[in-house]
């Protein structure tokens, strides 16, 4: 599994884990993120059960497992968090932040030891040592209970499925040519995102943030001006085209 440092500051680091070459075929590629502070670490969208071993092995290159005290699931999909039952065995004292709406559903993946901290619809902030992590509402983008994660210090927005693209194996981890990349995102957003109203609401919220990197759970990461290009593109895009 490829690991790239997205941010390295005095107080914390952002790491992205993805492009797993050993993942079984027919399984969509996913990006997992970890924020590491002095004493803690949070894994954002830890991924599906099929890549658990690769993910765990990659993580211990950077932190001892005792340091992983928090998990976050943007929504309930299996590629996001079907590994929960195994993380539950690995990190029995950790806390999972996930939408309140999905608690009864997510527990089907196995959550006997980990503490489920349900995120309210309006979102919330937590502190990890010296940094603040904000859970930004992203409901219906695409899941009915859905959150993005924003780190105001590193100026990184982990956007979950928003900004996702279906890319071939070995594709670059960062968007290199936005206009070309748009075509890899169009179908995903039109078909997976159900609501134009929800989309506008999310774009409005996110425009208020200062974002250096927008990091989706599939595909490539947007940096600098491509973030605003993406927001403009999404704002105009007609979604919910499956009916």
């Amino acid at each position: 599994m490829k690991v790239v440092k997205l941010h390295e500051g005095r107080s914390h680091e952002w790491l992205v884990f993805g492009r797993d070459e050993e993942r079984p075929s027919k399984i969509i590629d996913t990006n997992q993120y970890m924020i590491k502070t002095a004493n803690h670490a949070i894994i954002l969208d830890p991924g599906g059960i099929e890549l658990f071993s690769a993910m765990l092995a990659a993580v211990v290159h950077h932190v001892p497992i005792q340091q992983i005290t928090h998990l976050f699931a943007s929504h309930q999909d299996p590629d996001i968090i079907s590994s929960l039952g195994l993380w539950d065995k690995t990190l029995p004292h950790a806390t999972l932040y996930a939408p309140w709406l999905w608690e009864g559903f997510l527990r089907h993946f196995g959550c006997n030891s980990i503490k489920y901290n349900p995120l309210p619809d309006e979102g919330k902030s937590i502190r990890l040592d010296d940094i603040e992590i904000q859970f930004i509402p992203a409901h219906y983008m695409h899941s009915s209970g859905n959150f993005s994660v924003y780190d105001p210090q590193a100026k990184i927005l982990m956007s979950g499925d928003i900004g996702a693209a279906l890319l071939p194996d070995g594709a670059p981890l960062f968007v290199e040519d936005f206009d070309h990349h748009v075509e890899k995102m169009r179908l995903f957003h039109q078909r997976w995102m159900p609501s134009n109203r929800a989309k506008k609401d999310w774009v409005r919220r996110v425009r208020q943030l200062d974002i250096q990197y927008m990091a989706p759970q599939h595909g490539a990461i947007f940096k600098g001006k491509d973030v605003n290009r993406f927001l403009d593109w999404l704002d105009e895009l007609e979604v919910g085209t499956g009916v």
Partner: peptide, 17 residues
């Protein structure tokens, strides 16, 4: 799966955790 993770992380600094 834990065995696989152990095998893959033999050289990891925190693999023993």
């Amino acid at each position: 799966r834990f065995k696989q993770a152990q095998a893959r992380s033999r050289t990891a600094p925190f693999g023993d955790t």
